[in-house]
């Protein structure tokens, strides 16, 4: 009954002579919150960037929502891009636009909605991520890091995507905002039926939100599955990372 949203097969990534991933496989089901974990420099963010077609991989295969990234035409790629939202680590809001314009941009470009309708959608998204309406006319340089993340999430959600990629969504947030963020993500999933893929280092957030995880270590997936039986796996990273939690 569960369908596959993303499938990565035999992926190999190489920067110069340095191999980042070697025959890496993973499957992400529709509707789940999936975490990519691993030690620094193991290529989590690289894998995420490969999924959203920012980085090219060496060999192997990535399939997203039925599109094969190896042989995707520019029209299909464009279609696919409208079906996902991406949240970058530092937000990556367009610095020449206000928050309102940032969030409205995909709507303005891709739809023929009236300005009034767009305004209403923007107001809703701003509310949804927990920003105040007064902030909407500020420029990204004028707001705090946490607000940037929220605004970037609102922009990622602007087109109501099926798929959401989050790169360290809670890093740089204070603990309260981070927990709010987790709650928001869970709520969005149940409200909108999103499939969420995230890279995270925040243990609390990992335990609170993730359905399944993949641990990348030594160029491969060291573990893929739920968090319940993660401690049965022999891995130095898992031991040190999850070791003390819940004991």
């Amino acid at each position: 009954m569960m369908s596959t949203a993303i499938e990565v097969k035999n992926l190999k990534t190489q920067f110069g002579s340095k191999i980042i991933h070697q025959s890496l496989n993973l499957t992400i089901n529709t509707g789940e919150i999936y975490g990519l974990l691993g030690p620094s420099g193991c290529g989590k963010t690289t894998l995420l960037r490969e999924m959203v077609m920012l980085e090219k991989y060496h060999s192997g295969n990535i399939n997203i929502l039925g599109y094969d990234l190896n042989n995707i035409g520019s029209e299909d790629a464009q279609k696919l891009r409208r079906e996902w939202g991406v949240l970058f680590q530092a937000g990556a809001l367009f610095s020449s636009l206000t928050l309102r314009e940032n969030i409205a941009l995909p709507l303005v470009e891709y739809t023929d909605l009236s300005p009034k309708m767009i305004e209403e959608i923007v107001r809703f998204k701003i509310n949804l991520v927990g920003l105040k309406h007064g902030d909407a006319n500020l420029y990204p340089a004028q707001i705090s890091g946490g607000m940037k993340k929220k605004a970037a999430l609102a922009r990622a959600l602007a087109m109501d995507p099926k798929l959401l990629f989050l790169d360290e969504p809670t890093s740089g947030l204070d603990p309260i905002s981070a927990r709010d963020f987790d709650a928001l993500i869970l709520e969005l999933r149940s409200l909108l039926g999103l499939t969420i893929v995230m890279v995270s280092h925040d243990l609390q957030s990992i335990y609170d939100t993730l359905d399944r995880v993949a641990i990348i270590d030594h160029k491969k997936i060291a573990y893929e599955g739920t968090l319940d039986n993660i401690k049965s796996v022999e891995s130095k990273f898992i031991k040190t990372f999850f070791g003390k939690y819940n004991e």
């Binding site: 960037r49 959203v52 077609m53 920012l54 790629a77 464009q78 891009r81 409208r82 996902w84 991406v86 970058f88 680590q89 530092a90 990556a92 809001l93 367009f94 610095s95 941009l105 995909p106 470009e109 891709y110 990629f165």
Partner: peptide, 17 residues
Amino acid sequence: GAMKITEELDAMRTMGF
């Protein structure tokens, strides 16, 4: 260049712009 550093270009690409 500044847009590249702040990942704005990447953000544009993922949004299909």
